[in-house]
């Protein structure tokens, strides 16, 4: 599997990453190498093999659906890069 510049751009868009034009060819090579490496899995027969969902084989526990935390906006917002009153602030998205 060879990754093109266009595929790099698409993956960067999906991952919400700004990638400099100068880095795209390098990344295409690096991503191709990794995908080339993982391609050896194609040689393994996995017909009728269930995908592993949990390594501990435990069943999920049920709990009551009730509020057990909250009411501390200062703790929640303590690390906000930008805030207005009790809200996170972000650049304007509506003109």
């Amino acid at each position: 599997m060879s990754i093109t510049r266009e595929t790099v751009e698409q993956a960067a868009r999906l991952a919400r990453l700004t990638v400099a034009d100068d880095d795209k060819d390098r990344l295409a090579g690096e991503l191709s190498a990794i995908l080339g490496f993982v391609e050896q899995l194609d040689e393994i027969n996995t017909d009728d093999v269930e995908p592993l969902t949990s390594v501990v084989g435990a069943t999920a526990r049920m709990r009551k659906d009730e509020v057990n935390a909250g009411d501390y906006p200062e703790r929640v917002l303590a690390n906000a890069p930008d805030r207005v009153t009790d809200f996170y602030a972000v650049p304007k998205v509506v003109e």
Binding site: L17, L31, I34
Partner: peptide
Amino acid sequence: VQRRIMIGAYVLS
């Protein structure tokens, strides 16, 4: 990290 995020985004796409 960027390399791995992009690989991840690609294989999950």
